[in-house]
């Protein structure tokens, strides 16, 4: 039974890999600075490392809005999120896995009659609007600074190419590590309490915990998603919205990382509080929204006619439909699982 329930987590992992790899390596592949194969291998290695090394500390969206208190219910939540992300991946749109999970949890809340924390929900929804705008602003400012730096330092064309390539590889590797660390809890976190794995000792004193084994399995699923299906969304992010130059590609990944940091750093929040400045809410934001915001921001800087607005409209539309889809799928599947398969999907 465990393996059956775990399958939805694996499906979610696969969908996440297929969709979110584009956020860290899409611009590098789209600007032809990295080959897809190189990007995919780097992404897989660092996603696995991030999941196994830092995944244990990640507590993510699941449980924030409502505590899914039955394994069958958790299975449906993960499955609904995975299905909606998969559908958007088919349409080549970069969407947020967190958004999909939020939608699926609200579906569970509606079905089980549990209250939804409207305060947390409104906070999260506001960040869905603020995140791409902020990312776009940071990208534009960063790009201006980088442009002045390059002109002042008179960097040779080939040296600049080399520096940009290193930058994209480093940022991509770091982004993939963070992707694994932050999202692995979304993928397999709910299966931790029912995991049949035990501690494994390796090389004498090196011990692998059950959580790490589960995270490793989840990260493998993400890696399979990256290798088998991420190219489609990478193309949309890298060249579908606006044709990025390599420097722009690097700035886009940088802006996206800064935004994720701003919304996740407790130290920064404390610093702003100490200085008497307004703080940003510490909520999980979508890296897809951040990267798309950055790309659109730089496209606007270069003249808005350069942007393919039809693609941008499609992406923005997918951000609205993803949580709604996930909510509907979740509600319908919960109904079927409870009434047809006689499973307990929530505890009263």
């Amino acid at each position: 039974m465990f393996l059956f329930f775990l399958s939805s987590g694996m499906f979610l992992g696969w969908s996440l890999g297929a969709n979110d790899a584009s956020n860290v390596f899409g611009t590098a592949v789209g600007s032809r600075m990295l080959r897809f194969r190189t990007a995919a291998i780097l992404c897989c290695v660092f996603v696995i490392l991030g999941s196994v090394i830092s995944g244990a500390g990640a507590t993510h969206t699941l449980g924030k809005l409502g505590a899914v208190n039955a394994v069958a219910g958790a299975f449906v939540v993960a499955f609904s999120a995975a299905m909606s992300v998969y559908l958007m991946t088919l349409a080549r749109y970069p969407v947020s896995t967190s958004q999909a999970i939020v939608g699926a949890i609200i579906g569970w809340n509606l079905f089980s009659g549990s209250p939804t924390d409207s305060n947390a929900l409104s906070k999260i929804i506001i960040t869905w609007i603020v995140c791409p705008i902020l990312s776009g602003i940071i990208a534009v400012i960063s790009y201006k600074v980088v442009s002045v730096f390059i002109l002042k330092r008179k960097i040779h064309m080939f040296r600049l190419d080399e520096m940009t390539r290193y930058g994209l590889v480093l940022m991509g590797a770091f982004g993939a590590f963070a992707l694994g660390a932050n999202n692995i809890a979304n993928v397999v976190g709910v299966f931790l309490p029912v995991s049949p794995f035990g501690y494994i000792e390796l090389f004498g004193d090196f011990c692998v915990s059950p959580a790490q084994q589960l995270f490793f399995l989840g990260s493998l699923a993400i890696s399979v998603g990256v290798i088998t299906y991420s190219k489609r969304v990478m193309d949309t992010v890298g060249s579908g919205i606006f044709k990025l130059s390599p420097v722009m590609a690097l700035v886009a990944v940088w802006a996206h990382s800064v935004v994720l940091f701003l919304f996740a750093s407790q130290r920064l929040e404390q610093l702003l509080l100490d200085l008497g400045l307004p703080t940003l809410p510490l909520v999980p934001v979508s890296s897809s929204q951040a990267i798309v915001g950055a790309v659109v921001g730089m496209g606007l800087l270069k003249g808005r006619h350069n942007i393919r607005w039809r693609t941008v409209g499609g992406i923005a539309g997918s951000w609205v439909t993803t949580p709604i889809f996930a909510c509907l799928i979740s509600f319908i599947c919960l109904f079927i699982l409870q009434n047809v398969f006689q499973q307990t999907v929530y505890l009263p």
Binding site: S31, R32, M33, R35, M157, F158, D161, S245, P246
Partner: peptide, 11 residues
């Protein structure tokens, strides 16, 4: 070696 992918045709 796929250097300067955006400008190599021009170069």
């Amino acid at each position: 070696k796929t250097l300067i992918p955006e400008s190599r045709g021009d170069v």
